[in-house]
């Protein structure tokens, strides 16, 4: 699918039915159009995904940088919305802060796993001076680590904080949907290890794929739609007004 087509499609979507319908009509042009679905209600904060991703993709385990991480939100429901107290906790190393009861201060808690959104209109791709970032034909955004000059412009430009400098490699790094695995027909490492099925990955052009089915049936949203980045990571059950 051409990027322009993808943009056109997403731009017109408001509810799930038309998006999936529109995305799938592109079948003839290319064989695959990858997407990722995160079900916020299913995440239990075990952090398996964070660790599996770091192991699979050689990201330093103990440094607070990660291709995928989990944000925990704790909200005081007993105060008016305008004064809502929100506490945010992040798991991006092997240490799991969600296990500590003290971290859940308020009455309502939920977890939001995050990763690179593989934006169809990706700010990081737009700003990279040396074309080290690019879209594959399946819509995945990749970094060519042999070309990246480490100017860090992409880190500054990404509205999601999904890209970081790998201090060992001296180039930027981010989620690739485990490109080395998905091209062999495997699932991304985080999807593979998630015990509750909070993460799903698949091809939107395949009517049998799990992401196709979920997005066809359920209401979904994306992070920061106002940025116009047209993410390929879709969320179910996201409390948009609270999640950063």
């Amino acid at each position: 699918m051409k990027r322009r087509d993808f943009i056109k499609l997403i731009a017109t979507l408001t509810i799930s039915a038309p998006i999936v319908k529109a995305l799938t009509t592109q079948e003839q042009e290319t064989d695959k159009s990858y997407a990722f679905v995160v079900d916020v209600n299913k995440c239990i904060g075990c952090g398996n995904c964070v660790i599996a991703c770091k192991v699979e993709n050689d990201v330093p385990m103990d440094l607070p940088i990660a291709r995928t991480w989990v944000e925990g939100y704790s909200i005081d429901e007993n105060v008016p919305l305008s004064k809502t107290k929100v506490q945010k906790i992040v798991m991006n190393t092997a240490k799991n802060p969600f296990l500590d009861k003290k971290n859940w201060r308020y009455s309502k808690n939920f977890l939001v796993p995050k990763l690179c959104n593989h934006c169809a209109n990706a700010p990081c791709v737009n700003v990279c001076p040396v074309y080290a970032r690019f879209h594959t034909k399946e819509g995945v955004v990749l970094v060519d680590k042999n070309t990246c000059i480490g100017c860090k412009y992409c880190i500054v430009a990404c509205p999601y904080g999904a890209t970081f400098l790998n201090p060992e490699e001296k180039v930027t790094d981010k989620c690739t949907f485990c490109f080395h695995r998905i091209t062999k027909g495997l699932k991304p490492a985080c999807v593979e290890v998630c015990p509750t099925g909070a993460r799903s990955f698949g091809d939107l052009n395949d009517k049998e794929s799990i992401v196709y089915k979920i997005l066809k049936e359920k209401e979904f949203s994306v992070l920061k739609p106002e940025e116009g980045t047209l993410p390929r990571v879709f969320y179910l059950g996201l409390e948009e007004y609270l999640v950063e």
Binding site: N126, C128, P129, V130, Y131, T147
Partner: peptide, 26 residues
Amino acid sequence: EIEQVMRGSYAMLGHTNPSSLMFWMI
């Protein structure tokens, strides 16, 4: 300041992104 300054040579060989303002600034 740039982490891999020697790779600037790629840029000189034309591996550049005209939509990047950093490229134009340089």
